[in-house]
Amino acid sequence: MSIQHFRVALIPFFAAFCLPVFAHPETLVKVKDAEDQLGARVGYIELDLNSGKILESFRPEERFPMMSTFKVLLCGAVLSRVDAGQEQLGRRIHYSQNDLVEYSPVTEKHLTDGMTVRELCSAAITMSDNTAANLLLTTIGGPKELTAFLHNMGDHVTRLDRWEPELNEAIPNDERDTTMPAAMATTLRKLLTGELLTLASRQQLIDWMEADKVAGPLLRSALPAGWFIADKSGAGERGSRGIIAALGPDGKPSRIVVIYTTGSQATMDERNRQIAEIGASLIKHW
């Protein structure tokens, strides 16, 4: 067993022997301040990774656009098919120029040779490549099948209805392509620590998230040296922004954090800054 596999296998073990965790309302004060600064709703939840206990939450059962955070769930569904012998990570998928959609920095470079399922998941999570996500959605049967996968996990809230990039439209009061912070946090925890996926697939999923290259201005910008984070960000229309993450000190994750916002007129930089400040408060009061 590799060191990384050992780390993920012992996530519940280490967490069980940690000192009790206590909620700190100071972080919620910052979440509410972010709402004021952005002029928009902000949803927040913080779960203990081992027990699933909610440590703090704000608007945990209000719907927010998922945006690209759905790509972690998508690759979880792909990995479940791999575990069941219905898919192979090494299978190569070929596609054409007509398949390319807006923001496809990886797939646009491989029109000639195609990409493997493993490479597509890596591109979808680490670079948020939209064509990679659409190609992977095709392998599982489309958005409705991802929703069905989530329902089978016990998540009857999260739903995907459309493809990239239309799913980022974020129309107010439109339930399409949305989740709730509580539902997303619980589902992410199941994917990373539950028995739904094999140990190898859980490790692969967290490795992809740990290698995320496009979430630097968010929670990662607030992390002290030595902290662990595996995350996936999302951005959408109407001032929408979000991030889902597993993080913790001492090089291992111990909490799940989900943050979503929508309806702001603020710039992307300002949305990023507010999420980073929430992260800084979380870490300060850990």
Rank of each mutant, 00 (worst) to 15 (best):
217 P>M: 13
120 L>S: 04
252 K>E: 12
230 A>W: 03
65 P>L: 03
167 L>V: 14
211 A>P: 06
224 P>G: 07
190 K>I: 15
177 D>N: 01
89 L>R: 06
68 S>R: 01
205 L>N: 01
127 M>D: 08
43 G>D: 03
157 V>C: 10
127 M>Q: 11
218 L>D: 04
188 L>S: 05
193 T>E: 10
122 S>W: 11
176 R>D: 04
276 A>M: 11
196 L>S: 13
204 Q>V: 13
126 T>M: 09
32 K>R: 15
274 Q>R: 11
217 P>G: 09
136 L>E: 01
251 G>V: 08
134 N>C: 00
283 I>T: 09
88 Q>P: 05
93 I>Q: 05
25 P>M: 14
126 T>S: 11
97 Q>T: 13
161 D>R: 02
175 E>I: 14
36 D>F: 12
112 T>A: 15
260 Y>W: 00
139 T>L: 15
139 T>A: 14
49 L>H: 06
197 L>D: 04
82 V>Q: 07
269 D>M: 11
97 Q>N: 12
101 V>C: 09
112 T>W: 15
252 K>N: 13
94 H>R: 12
283 I>A: 09
286 W>M: 06
46 E>H: 08
204 Q>T: 11
248 G>A: 04
286 W>R: 03
210 E>K: 10
188 L>P: 01
92 R>V: 14
87 E>L: 12
147 T>M: 09
174 D>P: 01
73 L>I: 12
66 M>L: 13
206 I>D: 03
280 A>K: 15
30 K>I: 10
284 K>M: 11
114 G>P: 03
95 Y>D: 04
110 H>F: 14
134 N>P: 00
277 E>R: 11
279 G>C: 07
203 Q>W: 09
149 F>A: 09
258 V>P: 00
65 P>D: 01
122 S>N: 14
118 R>S: 15
129 D>V: 03
177 D>R: 01
114 G>K: 04
57 S>P: 02
172 P>M: 11
145 E>C: 11
128 S>Y: 00
133 A>R: 00
49 L>N: 05
105 P>C: 00
167 L>R: 01
275 I>M: 10
66 M>H: 05
218 L>V: 04
85 G>A: 11
145 E>A: 12
196 L>M: 14
26 E>A: 13
205 L>C: 00
181 P>C: 08
87 E>W: 06
277 E>Q: 12
53 K>M: 15
190 K>Q: 15
42 V>Q: 02
204 Q>L: 12
24 H>M: 10
90 G>R: 11
34 A>D: 03
158 T>V: 04
74 L>D: 02
156 H>W: 13
225 A>R: 12
200 A>W: 08
84 A>P: 04
268 M>C: 07
106 V>S: 09
117 V>G: 01
280 A>Q: 13
277 E>F: 08
220 R>P: 04
75 C>G: 08
206 I>V: 11
168 N>R: 04
107 T>H: 01
259 I>F: 08
136 L>F: 03
283 I>S: 07
234 G>I: 02
73 L>C: 08
187 T>N: 11
93 I>L: 13
220 R>A: 04
115 M>N: 03
194 G>M: 11
31 V>S: 02
37 Q>I: 14
70 F>P: 03
35 E>R: 00
138 T>H: 15
59 R>A: 05
159 R>Q: 10
206 I>P: 01
192 L>P: 00
91 R>V: 05
30 K>L: 09
127 M>W: 13
199 L>F: 15
39 G>V: 10
134 N>D: 05
111 L>C: 10
109 K>G: 13
155 D>T: 03
248 G>F: 02
70 F>R: 01
254 S>P: 08
82 V>W: 07
224 P>S: 07
238 R>T: 10
161 D>P: 00
190 K>Y: 15
162 R>W: 01
42 V>W: 08
107 T>D: 01
50 N>Q: 14
135 L>F: 07
246 A>T: 12
182 A>M: 13
51 S>G: 09
81 R>H: 10
104 S>Q: 00
59 R>N: 13
196 L>H: 14
209 M>W: 02
74 L>T: 06
125 I>R: 00
126 T>V: 09
188 L>G: 04
34 A>R: 01
212 D>I: 05
251 G>D: 12
210 E>C: 11
143 P>V: 06
95 Y>C: 02
240 S>D: 04
96 S>E: 15
161 D>W: 00
153 M>A: 11
61 E>C: 08
82 V>F: 06
247 L>G: 01
199 L>V: 13
156 H>D: 13
220 R>H: 06
146 L>D: 02
102 E>K: 12
257 V>I: 14
45 I>D: 02
163 W>N: 10
64 F>V: 04
52 G>P: 05
153 M>C: 11
250 D>R: 13
149 F>Y: 14
155 D>H: 01
267 T>Y: 08
230 A>L: 04
222 A>N: 10
62 E>H: 08
223 L>M: 14
283 I>P: 02
270 E>K: 14
49 L>E: 03
131 T>H: 03
55 L>V: 12
240 S>N: 07
202 R>N: 07
269 D>V: 11
254 S>A: 13
96 S>M: 15
29 V>R: 15
128 S>Q: 01
199 L>D: 12
211 A>T: 09
157 V>P: 03
72 V>F: 03
108 E>S: 15
223 L>R: 05
217 P>I: 07
110 H>K: 11
230 A>H: 02
191 L>N: 02
153 M>V: 11
124 A>L: 03
